[in-house]
Design a protein around this nucleic acid. Structure first.
Lengths: 261, 261
DNA sequence: TAGGATACAGCAGAAACGTGCAACAACGTG
DNA sequence: CACGTTGTTGCACGTTTCTGCTGTATCCTA
């Protein structure tokens, strides 16, 4: 069994059972408790679990969130979000995906922009409370890990709406694997949303370019464009450009929104 | 059982029951009272509980999470919420209204409580992200003022679900006007939700008792009960009691330690 | 004030811990 | 294919932590 698969299993168990006992896993997999301990130690170091005597407990979502956020570039997301926000024209209807990049788009939107935002993320909806935009929330079972609604009910709700634009967040953009994300249901929901919008633009900060996750969302040819801060020479970007897709490059150095400056 | 998980359990019990008896926990978990005592001693040292003869009491909320508490709930709402949270039994399905009192109910719920929460408030859903409860979000047009979804789509989504319990927030509870709120659509949505639950309990902190707002939600006779921190002698409360409604009075202060009781 | 329950300290056995080391496989390079 | 490198795994070791027990002190209640 691969070490990476073992860690996935540990995280799954943490999510499912709320705890992991080192010895139990060792017996179950037929490996030594030392290896399990080593894995748990690394998960703890990464902030994805909390090591305790005898095993491990799930890290508090806030901490996981933080660890995940700290691991990637927030400034990068902010730049991409600022560029993506310019796609939202007054009066249009936009579907906004969940995730931290989409959250950054909300911050980048002018508060008085008159438009309709459709989202399946309660956190995005909450962030839009002080915007003038009309907000339509897609209901369904809440998928905790990504803080979005997924599943049959959510997909059905999505089928009732239509929009001009879909700002799609993914975890990987790869020349051959296309757009990918880490959860199967979530991938299906993103597909359902893409089907309801005239144009789908992908939010892809540089660290996602050239990478792939487990579940496919869409092939590259089905998107209208991509917003990124990556280098135009990047193979994945070159591939997209050669296919005639629109690629919007985020401004490299926007003035940081410094209240004091 | 992991020692760390045991401490989590103790904290949950403290939140749920307002107290913990060492011997009861020891019997329940099949461990010696010494271990429980040791845990309680450490929780006390960490400031997360107050050790008393026979068991422990919750630490003053101000100490536990000062930051979160400071933001919202006045003490009155917190007390009502704590009492209301005890109505949520393991395994049940509860509809949770929007509003600050309902938000306080989330804080009062044990994180590990296995139940299903149905809500039309994105902020409530977001607050439940670090709870184990299954969350189902009712979609629809977002009514910004109250941060809940309302309107035809939301009402229709509500018609698809059923629950054991509805915790209803209102702005007024009046002997003749009944339950009232400030917005017409919101009132309709609350009615729709009440129709989907076996029992409706109203969350009514003392400042709402005897007051009325413009739009009627329900007459008093249609609710199963009311949770309040008002005085039992209050005319509105007396009226309810005379009608045979169940009235739950929030504990003024955490119960004094009565392990023998 | 007496009796029973609870508290704490200290102890010992058991379990789990981390570290270092050696065996082994996978990999790239020459 | 030979070689060195790298990374993973299990084992041995001494150390730490947990747990229940014992004995004694303290606290509640009648």
């Amino acid at each position: 069994m691969l070490a990476a698969a073992r860690k996935d299993l540990l995280l799954d168990r943490l999510r499912r059972d709320g705890r992991v006992v080192a010895k139990e896993i060792a017996d179950e997999l037929g490996i030594s408790p030392d290896s399990v301990r080593r894995d748990l130690r690394e998960l703890d170091a990464a902030g994805l679990a909390v090591r305790v005597y005898g095993g491990a407990l799930p890290a508090s979502p806030a901490v996981v969130d933080y660890a995940a956020r700290a691991a990637v570039a927030p400034e990068s997301k902010r730049r991409v979000a600022a560029k993506a926000a310019t796609l939202i024209r007054p009066g249009c209807a936009v579907i906004l995906d969940g995730g931290t990049t989409a959250r950054a788009v909300v911050d980048a939107m002018p508060k008085s922009l008159p438009c309709t935002v459709i989202t399946h993320s309660p956190t995005i909806a909450a962030a839009l409370l002080d915007h003038e935009a009309e907000v339509f929330l897609l209901g369904g079972r809440l998928f905790k890990h990504s803080a979005v609604t997924c599943g049959a009910a959510a997909a059905e709700a999505a089928s009732r709406i239509s929009a001009d634009l879909f700002l799609l967040g993914v975890t990987g953009v790869h020349p051959t694997a296309g757009l990918t994300t880490a959860d199967l249901d979530e991938a299906a929901m993103k597909r359902a949303l893409a089907a309801r919008a005239a144009d789908t633009y992908v939010l892809a900060s540089v660290e996602k370019i050239g990478t792939a996750s487990r579940y496919a969302v869409l092939p590259l040819e089905e998107i209208a464009g991509l917003v990124t801060d990556a280098d135009p020479g990047e193979p994945t970007i070159a591939e997209l450009l050669s296919q005639g897709a629109e690629v919007l490059f985020a401004d490299i150095s926007p003035d940081p929104p410094r209240p004091s400056a």
